[in-house]
Design a protein around this nucleic acid. Sequence first.
DNA 1: ATCGTTAATCGTAGATAAACGATATTGGAG
DNA 2: CTCCAATATCGTTTATCTACGATTAACGAT
Lengths: 109, 109
Amino acid sequence: MATRKHKQPVCDDKPVPLPADEAAERLARLAWGVAHPARVRIVRLLLQRDSCVCGEIVDNLPLAQSTVSQHLKILKEVGLIQGEVDGPKVCYCINPAKLQELKTLIARF
Amino acid sequence: MATRKHKQPVCDDKPVPLPADEAAERLARLAWGVAHPARVRIVRLLLQRDSCVCGEIVDNLPLAQSTVSQHLKILKEVGLIQGEVDGPKVCYCINPAKLQELKTLIARF
DNA sequence: ATCGTTAATCGTAGATAAACGATATTGGAG
DNA sequence: CTCCAATATCGTTTATCTACGATTAACGAT
């Protein structure tokens, strides 16, 4: 996608379509974070209980522990959640700022 | 994902975790529709011009016509846009109801 | 009837995602 | 120090996405 080698008069009438592109990528990335039922449920769960040990999340999803761990990783990478090590456990919680950003960007659609 | 053969007491204390799951899938599917920069831009474009011939969309994206056509197909499948044949051209427009649904579901997060 | 334009579909290649089991890693208990 | 429980990571398999060019289908106009 990022190569941009086709179409577009390159630099004629329009100012340039790139500024909108960066915004599009941020929104796409955030949307992507919740573009899977398991991840939607994880976010919901974290919002309800406000914080949640990984094991609880696993128990609430019909997925293997390793799979859940991967989804958590994705959500972390996107920035929607953050995990804090608490002894042998890891406590996850929502990153309100990022969630708000997602809400705002979608709302402004 | 859909096989559900791990974890969860299957059918004990909880009424059943499926109602929430269905909602999660609807949201995930809608989010998925805009989980790609090109599709975000298409939606934006359609909102600006309120209707748009396919060719214009192609001209506004750094992608081949066939690729754009695929993204349009995805957006159509998700229900966010609809296309109407107009002679040899196809005029796309937003499906306001679906977009609203997406907004609402995200806002209620 | 044929041609040119527009858009969808086909076929393919490469990248990424999703899921799992198995294996490491970490930290607290004994 | 050793063991156990909780997570993360690895390796693999299968499926889906993304992108492209080429082809097909649909329509208007000549």
